[in-house]
């Protein structure tokens, strides 16, 4: 077990995890998606993986021990992976445009409505997923559908 830190880009050997997960657990690849694509996909993850997410959070409410909810956690990760790969298959261009926009705009949704709308449209047409924000006051347009918002690139 070496405790010396080697920079991964200059190390002469590939990085080996000295303390991997126990082998009796089923393997699940981590999602590895960075923050902007995650933020872009967040509402679709919420819609697509609702059952798994709820199940996992209920399990966590039972017991905070990380060992308690590993199975549910794997399901959550697999579901998110499934969704991200489906998004990439069906709406790669729109997805990329949106998360690149988020990346360049401090990860704020209200600067990126244009690419977001094309992404939402594509996701609805191809996968039937709709972005819904819970708790909107009754009779109001959801903020991502407002035609002429006050807060945008130019504050009006």
């Amino acid at each position: 077990m070496s405790t010396v830190y080697h920079k991964p880009d200059t190390a002469d050997q590939p990085y080996r995890d000295p303390t991997p997960l126990p082998t009796d657990l089923p393997k699940v690849a981590e999602l590895g998606t960075t923050s902007a694509p995650l933020k872009s996909a967040a509402f679709f993850i919420g819609a697509y993986c609702k059952d798994y997410n709820d199940d996992f959070m209920l399990c966590k409410a039972e017991n905070r021990d990380p060992a308690h909810c590993l199975k549910e956690g794997r399901r959550v990760t697999r579901c998110a992976q499934d969704l991200i790969s489906k998004m990439r298959e069906n709406c790669l261009e729109q997805f990329k445009a949106h998360w690149n926009c988020l990346e360049h705009n401090n990860q704020e949704y209200h600067y990126c409505r244009k690419p977001e709308r094309t992404l939402n449209k594509c996701m609805f047409e191809k996968l039937g997923l709709v972005k819904t924000i819970p708790g909107i006051p009754e009779g109001k347009t959801p903020i991502h559908d407002v035609k002429d918002p006050i807060y945008g690139h130019v504050q009006k």
Binding site: T19, P20, L21, P22, V28, E30, L31, L38, K39, A42, F43, I45, G46, C49, Y52, N53, F56, M57, K60, P66, A67, C69, L70, E72, G73, R74, V76, T77, A80, E108, Y109, H110, I133, P134, G135, I136, K140, P142, I143, H144, Y151
Partner: peptide
Amino acid sequence: ELQRERVWSRIHLVPLLLAEGDRDAYR
């Protein structure tokens, strides 16, 4: 409304991030 949107985008990601963190904590 923008704040609500921001918060919910995070809430939808919590299980995913928590699951990943849990696996690492367990390891």
